[in-house]
Amino acid sequence: MSSQVRGGTRWKRFALVMVPSIAATAAVGVGLAQGALAASFSVSGQDFKVSADKLDGENLIQYGGIAKGNDLKTGKPVDHPVTISGFSNAKITNMCQSLVTPTPLGNITLQLKTGHKGTPAEATNIYLDVAELDTDAEFTNLDIGVAVGDPSHKTKPQAGTVSSPYAFSQRADRAVLTNVKQKAWATTAGTFKLPNLKLRLVGGDQPCYQDKDVRD
């Protein structure tokens, strides 16, 4: 894993770069929360998988959007339809995030695990750009069909993601999702606390869950 392979990829250097980038998530998120950074951005050419035993979120806002990116192989622009879910605060138990990348050595999986030793991961002002979601959900004080730009939303839509303030959305005071399996294009947060963080590079295709594990 530490040697240079054809194509110029240094896997040891790749791992060293990824670890501090995860640690910097909170600092970047604080900038977003304070308006110091633009919240709209181009997504990478790869989606990633996330699983969790439980996500307990406050002040849900949920609406449709487009994640703009480029095809990983051709570089051509691609638009990805997504459901954007925002929470003012969320606690995530036993969270796993994975990204499988093809390399000259075969597939390499980046795995990130946190919130698995009794203390959940906790995020504020978090937005999830989700392409697929399988879960068991319970909502408290759910309103369906609210305009996304309605000023009564306790969690506001993410900057740069709303084409019309009159677009369809829903909201809830609380959303509890269990047995979560999702594919996402992006996640942003004001702060993101990751207790007992473990980051690993493993050989092969070893995502947080297999597609066959998802219910029909």
Rank of each mutant, 00 (worst) to 15 (best):
W185S: 09
L72D: 11
P207D: 13
D150E: 13
R200K: 07
T155I: 08
K91N: 11
N179L: 03
V202I: 15
A186Y: 06
K76I: 08
R174L: 03
K117D: 15
T140I: 11
S152L: 02
R200L: 06
D136V: 06
A172V: 01
L128D: 10
C96L: 06
V146I: 15
T178F: 14
L199P: 00
H116P: 02
A189I: 05
S169W: 07
S85P: 00
G75E: 04
T188G: 04
C208F: 04
W185N: 12
T119R: 05
H116G: 11
L105D: 12
K113L: 09
T83S: 07
A175D: 04
A159P: 05
K73N: 10
K193T: 04
L128S: 09
N141P: 03
P157K: 00
K91S: 15
T74R: 09
T124S: 12
K193N: 08
W185I: 07
C96F: 03
Q210V: 05
G118F: 09
K117A: 15
T187I: 15
T124V: 13
F139C: 06
T191A: 02
N70I: 01
D205V: 15
D143C: 14
T114W: 03
A131K: 08
Q210G: 08
P120F: 11
A121D: 08
A172Y: 00
K193M: 01
V180R: 02
R174V: 03
P102S: 07
P120W: 04
D136L: 05
G106A: 05
L110K: 06
G203E: 15
T140S: 11
S164G: 01
D150M: 05
L194S: 12
T74M: 14
D173W: 00
M95S: 05
Y127N: 04
G203V: 07
V146H: 09
L201M: 13
F139N: 11
Q170R: 00
G190Y: 00
F192A: 09
P151H: 07
D71T: 09
T83L: 12
P120Q: 07
N89K: 11
A137I: 08
F192M: 04
T187P: 03
N141C: 03
D143S: 12
N179D: 10
Q97Y: 05
P102M: 10
F87Y: 14
V100K: 06
C208Q: 02
T124D: 13
V100L: 06
G86C: 08
P165V: 09
L112P: 01
V202C: 07
A131M: 14
A123R: 00
R200M: 03
T155L: 10
G190M: 03
A90T: 08
E122N: 14
K198V: 13
S164P: 00
